[in-house]
């Protein structure tokens, strides 16, 4: 079974004549170690899909199942614990707290979950180390470049025992080298068994995924089939 499963998820805002159907019967799954990209233009419902998958918002219909547990059957407290322990979020604008250092930003979710300060700090430094940022651990967000801030946000999303990584346009306004670095980090997390879902309008980003799902007007309209090996591409590739 997939680690994250969305089953017939529907989301409706407003009612009557002002009703907006943001998502309409969306089903998709993300396996452990898998990276799925959801691609669609703005207004297609992809950010709503991500917030519902991350239990930040309730669906109007259908259900979300994470690691075999249906969110609709969980108590408020259980869901809050799931968000703190299991799910890591990465947003376009990084969402780092300006008054905290890089290490404090990363260790905060662990401390909120009851991990002792010293253990949380050790885990945070390990996560920063993995992303090549340990020497910036004591810097505040405004002392970091855009690429470094996003790496801190990814460290925060994967610190501890998080098994589900949800990212909304994770490369934001970063240049292509930094965007590539961000996707390599997300892939590295997947190699350790993390299930990841990235929503984006950017094909260069989506192309890092194992599977790309296309969303239009709140509906899944299409998805890629698993690509053949890269070798096939070269032998059939462009000839001089």
């Amino acid at each position: 079974m997939s680690f994250l499963e969305l089953r017939h998820v529907t989301k409706v805002y407003g009612d009557g004549s002002s009703e907006v159907r943001a998502l309409d019967d969306v089903s998709l799954g993300v396996d452990r170690g898998g990276l799925v990209a959801v691609m669609g233009p703005s207004g297609s419902g992809k950010s709503t899909l991500l917030t519902i998958a991350g239990s930040l918002e309730e669906p109007s219909g259908g259900e979300v199942v994470i690691d075999g547990h249906s969110l609709s059957e969980m108590s408020h407290n259980d869901k809050a614990r799931l968000r703190r322990r299991t799910i890591g979020y990465v947003f376009q604008d990084f969402n780092l707290l300006p008054g905290l250092t890089a290490a404090e930003n990363v260790s905060l979710p662990l401390e909120l979950d009851g991990t002792g300060a010293r253990r949380a700090r050790t885990a945070a430094l390990e996560a920063l180390e993995r992303l090549g940022l340990v020497e910036r651990a004591g810097h505040f967000p405004d002392q970091l470049s855009g690429g470094e801030r996003q790496r801190v946000a990814i460290a925060r999303a994967v610190v501890g025992e998080r098994r589900l990584l949800l990212a909304d346009e994770p490369s934001g306004a970063l240049d292509s080298a930094n965007s590539e670095a961000v996707m390599r980090m997300i892939l590295a997390a997947c190699k350790t068994g993390v299930a990841a879902m990235v929503v984006t309008h950017d094909a260069q980003l989506a192309a890092w995924a194992d599977r790309v799902v296309f969303l239009r007007d709140g509906t899944v309209v299409d998805q890629t089939v698993p690509p053949p090996s890269a070798e096939a591409l070269i032998s059939s590739g462009p000839k001089p």
Partner: peptide
């Protein structure tokens, strides 16, 4: 996009 996935894999 499928073509891009293959190039990206490379």
């Amino acid at each position: 996009v499928e073509l891009m996935q293959q190039w990206t894999r490379l």
